[in-house]
């Protein structure tokens, strides 16, 4: 964590400018490497210097991420990244704050902060590295682990119902909700670009493979060879089509989707990121393998004032109403008496 000299602002940045120089120590083959590369690539395109960003994380394999960035970084404590980041953003409102978290950090020990950061529309770009396992503590099940998974802390199989991160985010009122995958660099960078441009909470679930404790957990549906049939890519204003030859699509039947042949009369649903109720995003977030194609892309994007804007609006309004702070007047209060 030696300090990094920030390049002059006019300079175009390279992904390398966003690397702290610290040797990256995730396991060989870990999905985290690709996410780090994608974030560094996206940041290098945006014209902002490393010192204009802050990366905040909790505890877990993914939470080492800020230490590898040349930006400001705070590797904090388990579950509290969003709360810490809330304070950073309030203290330094012009700083662009990103939060790196995992399925245990964000949804288990940090579940409460997750709800409330999104509800308040804190201006944070939140990347959830979802590998459906506890990696750093060496292989216990996480809140997103699938039912029946057998591992160290569940030798007879997991009996918990897994959490659905996107549905939790939507229910909490998130203004930007997306999903991408660690094995698709083009898609990841595009989603991160969109998130970076969003004002308010941007929540991105990355399907991230843990090569040691939960290897190939997403392979069935995100494997490169088969994914055209098992994933569906969301594009705003475009029909929900998928399949090797784009032969299938999703039709809205009541409150849920059906996978149908994409013939001329099929009434394939057109994706709308800005749909006001969030109900359709929620329906999409409920689609799981193998019954449905798993959606990747931006589920929801709506505008709402960010928390720090409202917070500073009140400070400015108070300044206007009461003028510059007068400490002597405050100390005196409404009623005094003098002893001579």
């Amino acid at each position: 964590m030696t300090p990094t000299t920030t390049p002059a602002p006019a300079k175009a940045f390279t992904p390398q400018d966003f690397h702290s120089g610290l040797i990256v120590r995730w396991c060989p083959g870990c999905g985290d490497y690709a996410i780090l590369a994608a974030v560094q690539k996206v940041l290098s395109e945006r014209g902002k210097a490393p010192h204009e960003y802050a990366f905040v994380s909790g505890i877990g394999c993914s939470s080492r991420f800020p230490l590898y960035m040349s930006t400001y970084g705070f590797h904090s404590i388990h579950g509290r990244a969003l709360a810490v980041a809330t304070g950073v953003k309030a203290a330094a409102p012009s700083q662009e704050v990103w939060v790196i978290t995992g399925d245990g950090d964000c949804l288990s020990i940090g579940g409460n902060h997750f709800i409330h950061a999104l509800r308040r529309n804190q201006d944070l770009k939140i990347i959830l590295f979802n590998n459906e396992i506890y990696g750093l503590t060496k292989g216990q099940y996480s809140p997103t682990s699938r039912k029946g998974l057998v591992n160290k802390s569940a030798p007879y199989g997991v009996i918990d119902e897994p959490a659905n991160p996107l549905r939790l985010a939507l229910a909490a009122g998130a203004t930007f909700v997306a999903r991408t995958a660690d094995n698709d660099m083009a898609h990841m960078t595009e989603v991160f670009r969109r998130a970076a441009a969003h004002k308010g909470s941007a929540f991105i679930e990355v399907l991230q493979n843990c090569v040691i404790f939960n290897d190939k957990v997403f392979e069935e549906y995100y494997g490169v060879k088969t994914r055209k049939d098992t994933l569906i890519y969301l594009h705003d204003g475009q029909p929900l089509l998928y399949g090797k030859t784009v032969e299938r699509g999703l039709r809205l039947d009541g409150f849920s989707f059906s996978s149908v042949e994409a013939s001329g009369e099929a009434k394939i649903h057109v994706h709308d990121e800005h749909e006001s109720t969030g109900a359709l995003a929620n329906a999409l977030a409920g689609l799981t393998h193998p019954d449905y194609p798993v959606p990747l892309g931006v589920f929801r994007q709506v505008e709402r004032p960010a928390y720090h804007e409202l917070m500073y609006e009140q400070v400015d309004a108070a300044r206007k109403a009461y003028g510059e702070p007068d400490l002597a007047k405050l100390l005196k209060g409404p009623k005094t008496w003098t002893v001579s």
């Binding site: 964590m1 300090p3 990094t4 000299t5 920030t6 702290s20 210097a49 490393p50 010192h51 204009e52 802050a54 800020p66 230490l67 960035m69 040349s70 930006t71 400001y72 970084g73 705070f74 590797h75 904090s76 404590i77 950073v88 203290a91 330094a92 012009s94 700083q95």
Partner: peptide, 16 residues
Amino acid sequence: PVGTPGLNYRTTGIEK
């Protein structure tokens, strides 16, 4: 103060 040019640094609860 976060955002100061030239002083970007990382900190952590791990021993430093």
